[in-house]
């Protein structure tokens, strides 16, 4: 059942959107959504790594021996993650400091290894690129939505811009770790309701 390129791209946006449908990559989804800037930065970093690693793994899929493919995938992914880390340190230092440990942790993000194993190692370069782009954008949008809810309610700001007057009492629970779980749970619930026809 061959899908068109467009379908490979759009499945990541809705039908298989990583955090809500595949329920993958939850660690950054929970930890990096305290603010829209964090969520966006994380999403873009993952998108970049996902596209690059998908393309390279797809290119090398005939060269990589089957028995050590996971090790090779991890090396490819780790390489791109360090590229992101160095570039972020050089050009977006504030974001780098905020995201801290979660940048190197992209290496063990299940979305990356999952897409490498399930898609890129079996499909062509262009399809893998479309898959990576779709999944990456889907992940970024998911993070931004969750971060918006948490930041607006928990901090009264959106992208650090105050929305309400000084009388607004922030619902601080939303930006704490338990708040992240509750928010994510509600999002999953909404996604399931919408998907049910």
């Amino acid at each position: 059942m061959a899908k068109t390129l467009g379908q490979e791209f759009t499945k990541g946006l809705w039908a298989e959107v990583p955090p809500y449908r595949l329920v993958l990559g939850l660690c950054p989804t929970l930890a990096m959504t305290t603010g829209v800037d964090n969520g966006l930065g994380m999403g873009l970093a993952v998108t970049f790594v996902l596209i690059c690693s998908n393309m390279l793994i797809s290119l090398l899929r005939k060269v990589i021996p089957k028995d050590v493919r996971i090790a090779c995938f991890i090396i490819v992914i780790a390489t791109f993650v360090i590229v992101v880390e160095l570039m972020m340190q050089a050009y977006a230092y504030a974001l780098f400091e905020q995201m801290g440990i979660f940048i190197p942790l992209i290496v063990v993000n299940c979305i990356l290894l999952g897409r490498a194993e399930a898609f890129a190692s079996k499909n062509g370069v262009v399809a893998s690129c479309a898959d990576g782009l779709g999944m990456g954008i889907g992940f970024t949008i998911s993070l931004v939505i969750l971060a918006s809810i948490r930041e607006v309610l928990g901090n009264g700001t959106f992208y650090k811009i105050p929305l309400f007057g000084p009388t607004f009492e922030p619902f601080a629970f939303m930006v704490t770790a338990p708040g992240a779980f509750v928010c994510l749970g509600l999002m999953l619930c909404v996604m399931n309701l919408l998907g049910k026809k």
């Binding site: 990589i64 050590v68 090396i75 780790a78």
Partner: peptide, 12 residues
């Protein structure tokens, strides 16, 4: 197998 992992790591 050994060589392919070594080459991957070295290039990276």
């Amino acid at each position: 197998l050994f060589l392919s992992v070594v080459v991957f790591s070295a290039v990276s």
